[in-house]
Amino acid sequence: MEKEKIITVKNLTKKFGDFTAVEAISFDVYKGEIFGFLGANGAGKTTAMKMLIGISNPTSGEANVAGFDVQSNSEMVKKNIGYMSQKFSMYDDLTVKENIVFFGGIYGLSRAEIKIKTAALVAELQIEDIINSLVGSLPLGWKQKLSFSVALLHEPKIVFLDEPTGGVDPITRRQFWEMIYTQAYKGTTIFVTTHYMDEAEYCDRVSIMVAGKIEALDTPKKLKEQFKVDSMNDVFLKLARNIE
């Protein structure tokens, strides 16, 4: 296999006092893959993701993201990844352009680079009309598409998306996934969480966390075969039932 591993996780564990939020999870993610990271509320997804993006130290185990250890080299991890979530995307009281310049600066791009990137983004998303509008005045779907693009400004190897499409209208949700596909096709690895089970079907592989552990990991097709059901929704229900 010539598949290049971009994330390797070995026995990654996080405890808060007596409570084990993430219990010895292990998996690999390959370059250019769309990896769906699913689980019920409270299953430990957010805790695991925080360790992978270098903002929370593991209690034990290890993870390597984009070639760097998340514990000993977390700053390099942060430089090589992009991140967006529904809760935090961009600053509402800055304009679209100001947000791009701000995040470009944060990610260490030069003024010249930011200028080029901004022009490319405007052309790609056709946003000439709203480039000077406050982000707060835009519909949610637009915000999400923009913040995905902003998370990609520094051309990260991996982008982490934490429920990027929650509450977004059905058409924009699909446009968002087309952006994800295009980006994965270009070789960017996508690590995504969602509560929409139809979106789980769009992933190359999916892991399902239950009570801190990864209980299943495979392609959507194989998971459905394994659990003898027709949809990812049923896979999810079968696996996570009676938890909490």
């Binding site: 509320n41 929650g166 509560h195 999810f236 039932r241 938890i243 909490e244």
Partner: peptide
């Protein structure tokens, strides 16, 4: 049910 997983939603 916004932001709630499929089990809790059901």
């Amino acid at each position: 049910t916004t932001g709630v997983d499929p089990i809790s939603r059901k």
